[in-house]
């Protein structure tokens, strides 16, 4: 009995490394199979669910492509790419007014006829939106003149929109551009 069991043990000891290798090999194959199966499942989901396609194609790949193609795009250019003419104008106002400026905005009716964005709430037509780009400058809308009379008297610049606002200046302008920002008083030398 003793000899037999010893032989058995010796035989199984010889088999163990081989068994382990087979086990490892099986585990590896199973591992690969599960991975392939999972990747196929994920690919099917990506193809079948439009929302997932949107995430991968539009939100990730499209943006990574833009970033790769324009790695050094300046912040104003990025704003312009997203916000168009509205940003170009507000950036112009920011660049051409001092930080302590009090700027008069046209009434809503003027914006309705302008070239600015008319869809939704965003754009130059919305005072809060403008403040984001113009702060610390102060903005007052024409329709708020009676609400804030003191501030109205402190206006230093006028936002010219679609030709509106030239009559607020105390001087005549030779070439009247439809969209610009001008000081309300003519400064010496200007």
């Amino acid at each position: 009995m003793g000899k037999k069991s010893k032989k058995k043990r010796q035989a199984s000891a010889k088999k163990q490394p081989a068994q382990q290798a087979t086990k490892k090999y099986t585990a590896f194959v199973n591992n690969v199979l599960v991975t392939i199966g999972l990747l196929i499942l994920l690919y099917v989901l990506y193809k079948a669910v439009p929302g997932y396609q949107f995430v991968v194609d539009r939100l990730v790949l499209a943006n990574l492509n833009i970033i790769q193609e324009n790695p050094n795009l300046s912040t104003p250019k990025k704003f312009e790419a997203k916000l168009g003419f509205d940003y170009r104008f507000i950036h112009y106002v920011e660049q051409n007014t001092p930080e302590d400026a009090v700027i008069l905005m046209p009434p809503d009716s003027i914006f309705a006829k302008s070239d600015f964005n008319k869809r939704g709430t965003w754009g130059v037509k919305t005072k809060t939106w403008d403040i984001y780009f113009l702060y610390p400058r102060t903005l007052i809308s024409e329709q708020d003149s009676s609400r804030y009379p003191e501030l109205y008297h402190k206006i230093t610049y006028v936002m010219i929109v679609n030709g509106w606002g030239y009559d607020k200046l105390n001087y005549r302008v030779q070439a009247e551009h439809p969209y610009t920002v001008l000081p309300i008083l003519q400064t010496p030398g200007s």
Binding site: L59, V60, N63, L64, I66, I67, T75, K78, F79, K82, L83, G120, T121, W122, T126, T128, W129, Y132
Partner: peptide, 16 residues
């Protein structure tokens, strides 16, 4: 990358 590349432009954030 998208977050850090693009500046803030969504209305609720710009006006809020």
């Amino acid at each position: 990358a998208k977050s850090l590349y693009w500046p803030t432009t969504s209305y609720d954030s710009v006006a809020g």
